[in-house]
């Protein structure tokens, strides 16, 4: 988070940022992640208290299904899909990823033995945190572009000149590109570890 903020023109850190930035950016990011953990604990507690812990097993396949649906955004972005707007798919990706991660977390429970499922779970948590950070970066980029556009328009520049100016403002775009370099490997790691886990389940318990 500190790195992201320092990538802006006016460096800031968690201690110097204004309350507005904190409430609009940091809080939603960390809040969504904490809500994920809290919801997992609550659902897990509920299932155990009702003697329904066994249901957690079925949360796994359901979570995989939801996560698979969330990757419709990637398919749309790479033009494997042609329906729906890209921002709409992005929003769906954000929501479904959170829900899918929740179901997988409930499925995982706290059963510390097999290494592979836990590695997959940790990779998924890393991917979720990374995704939430990307959401924050995207929001920051949009806000910056909007502010810059307004400023340039006030200076009397034409739309074409404004577009050219904004393209040269590469700091924000660079931050997003750097983020993708981290997010995609983490996501791939999660994908393959989860795949191994599913294959092992089919191999031993099908």
């Amino acid at each position: 988070m500190i790195t992201v903020i320092s990538a802006t023109k006016r460096p800031a850190c968690l201690f110097t940022m204004g309350p507005k930035l904190f409430s609009r950016s940091v809080l939603p990011f960390s809040g969504a992640f904490l809500a994920l953990i809290l919801a997992t604990v609550l659902i897990d507690w509920f299932l155990h208290s009702q003697g329904l812990a066994y249901w957690g097993r079925w949360a796994g396949p359901l979570g995989v299904l939801v996560l698979a649906l969330s990757f419709g955004y990637s398919a749309r972005k790479r033009k494997f899909l042609f329906t729906g707007s890209l921002p709409g798919w992005l929003r769906l990706h954000e929501y479904l990823s959170w829900i899918g991660a929740l179901l997988i977390m409930v499925h995982s429970g706290i059963h510390l033995h097999a290494w592979l499922p836990w590695a997959a779970t940790l990779a998924m948590l890393a991917a979720t945190a990374s995704g939430l950070m990307g959401k924050y970066l995207l929001k920051t980029a949009r806000d910056k572009m909007k502010a810059a556009k307004t400023k340039l328009a006030a200076q009397g520049l034409t739309d074409v000149e404004i577009e050219n100016q904004l393209l040269s403002d590469s700091l924000t775009l660079k931050a997003l590109a750097n983020w993708r370099k981290g997010h995609m490997p983490v996501t791939y790691t999660f994908f393959f570890l989860a795949l191994f886990h599913v294959v092992s389940i089919c191999f031993f318990w099908m």
Binding site: H113, A114, W115, L116, A123, F192, L193, F196, S200, F204
Partner: peptide, 23 residues
């Protein structure tokens, strides 16, 4: 990522009781 994935695959094949066994 590649190192992690390959390690997990090899671990699952060579030491399944640690990587895959539920207990």
């Amino acid at each position: 990522a590649l190192v992690l994935v390959v390690s997990a695959a090899l671990g699952s094949l060579l030491r399944p009781h640690q990587f895959l066994s539920p207990g």
